[in-house]
Design a protein around this nucleic acid. Structure first.
Lengths: 214, 214
DNA sequence: TTTTTTTTGGTGTCATCGCTCCATAAATCC
DNA sequence: GGATTTATGGAGCGATGACACCAAAAAAAA
């Protein structure tokens, strides 16, 4: 959508950049992921990115602009599995099961920070960061809406009872995933997260005509 | 446990405190609850508490010490319902149901900040706040352990199958509660949280001899 | 080669943060 | 009343945070 200054080809006039912009962005992303926006200082960033303040300012405009880019990079790289799985042709229950299982695995990779960059970000922050907070809430809403849309499709496909409260079910599973993120950040193992996911699938709505006994 | 300087009676020798220490502590608690530790500045604190820097230092030692006291105050005031409900004589399933329902209500009170002060605090923060992060992780573990103990009791009482993975079940429900906190902080209504709680109860383990069909 | 354009290194700057110090005030004790 | 003890108001301080500026460097364009 937004054509960045240097995507593959960039033969401008002036002095060429001495660093790989994408690589620097990923370094920033990992730092933000691990420490959050307010917990990551300017000096930490330029150190991890290996650039000077002027290069930083020149290439990324500001810390906030960089954070937004980092969120986009995260969505494309480390968050894509979510939308990918939602788009798979499996039946709805299998899709949700895969989603939770994949979440457990992704949140406990040893080559990336634990958990998710978005799931619990900026839930408690200074009033001066109100814009950031709204941005993250919006991001979370988008993931939840995507899941709700997939569940709604499930109703249309007959995978879910027609009376299912789709928005509530999506909110339930997103809540569970966000809680799994907290567990992951506190050091929970992949096995533990898989157990949580397995129990979460027990809440899957019963088929029509088979109401669960009280 | 720790006898504070002024609990009810304190007739020392010097000039008396010109402010209500407990009231000031609660003001700080609410600020920390809403903004987190790093998101709450010293100046914000003394403004909300209505005291000067020297009074602050004299009465609370440091921002970090105040935060610890605020956590304790929270546990006694706004977090007590959790342990209270765990201690009620109801059967285990009812207890968990009440816990989730109460959480939905507590997280959406209009006289207090949304959500919980502990549930998602310091999951992303600066490395310089490593101690704080561990403190919060420990707090979360304590709540989870308390729930696990109640569930274990449920196994002994015959409320839950003997083969139940208690730690996993506790982790599941605590994850759900933490996710509900994120929802609450993003502005979810009490009704929405109640729906999430209701769905969460659908994951309650089936009685022995009545395995859920695949 | 000169000009133009863009990036870079290094330093400076302004605000905020979390205290810290000190003189003064208000209580009790002798 | 004087001494002692504790709290207060207000100013200041060293560190950090997030840039901002500028002269020099490195490329293409003329």
């Amino acid at each position: 959508m937004t054509p960045k200054k240097n995507d593959v080809e960039r033969r401008g006039r002036g002095r060429p950049q001495s660093f790989d912009r994408t690589q620097a962005l990923y370094a920033a992303m990992r730092l933000f992921w691990d420490r959050g926006y307010e917990g990551t200082s300017f000096d930490d960033l330029i150190a991890a990115m290996g650039i000077s303040p002027s290069s930083f300012y020149n290439a990324f405009k500001s810390k906030e602009a960089l954070y937004q880019e980092a969120i986009e990079a995260y969505a494309k790289a480390s968050g894509a599995w979510f939308y990918d799985i939602l788009g798979e042709p499996a039946d709805t229950r299998t899709t949700l099961e895969r989603l939770l299982t994949f979440a457990a695995a992704e949140f406990t990779r040893d080559d990336l920070p634990a958990g998710c960059m978005i799931a619990v970000a900026a839930t408690q922050c200074s009033p001066s960061q109100a814009r950031l907070r709204e941005l993250m809430a919006t991001q979370r809403t988008q993931y939840e809406t995507a899941m709700a849309n997939r569940l709604r499709l499930g109703v249309n496909l007959g995978d879910l009872p027609a009376a299912t409260d789709i928005d509530a079910l999506a909110a339930f599973y997103m809540s569970l995933i966000r809680g799994m993120v907290v567990q992951a950040r506190d050091g929970a193992t992949r096995e533990r997260l898989l157990e949580i996911a397995r129990i979460g699938m027990q809440a899957w709505p019963a088929k029509e005509g088979h109401p669960s006994a009280a």
